[in-house]
């Protein structure tokens, strides 16, 4: 195992490349997922605000 990690003395360079590549690829996915969940929250808020507006408008119409 230690021999495999050492990579004939090039371990630092090889794992330095693979680690950064892996981290960046995972990070990209995390960022896209976060963007999606934030977007969902924003749309939900938008939806609630709209239905609230509709209710108040209906209330207003009933009152008058």
């Amino acid at each position: 195992m230690a021999e495999f990690l050492d990579m004939g003395g090039y371990g630092f360079y090889i794992w330095g490349s693979y680690l950064v590549t892996g981290v960046l690829m995972v990070l990209e996915v995390i960022l896209v997922r976060r963007r999606r969940s934030q977007l969902k929250r924003r749309l939900d808020r938008m939806g609630r605000m709209q239905s609230h507006e509709e209710e108040t408008r209906l209330d207003h119409e009933i009152e008058t």
């Binding site: 990579m7 004939g8 003395g9 090039y10 360079y13 090889i14 490349s17 693979y18 590549t21």
Partner: peptide
């Protein structure tokens, strides 16, 4: 040596 294995992602 082993260093060429970086090629598989590079």
């Amino acid at each position: 040596g082993e260093a060429y294995r970086i090629m598989f992602i590079h």
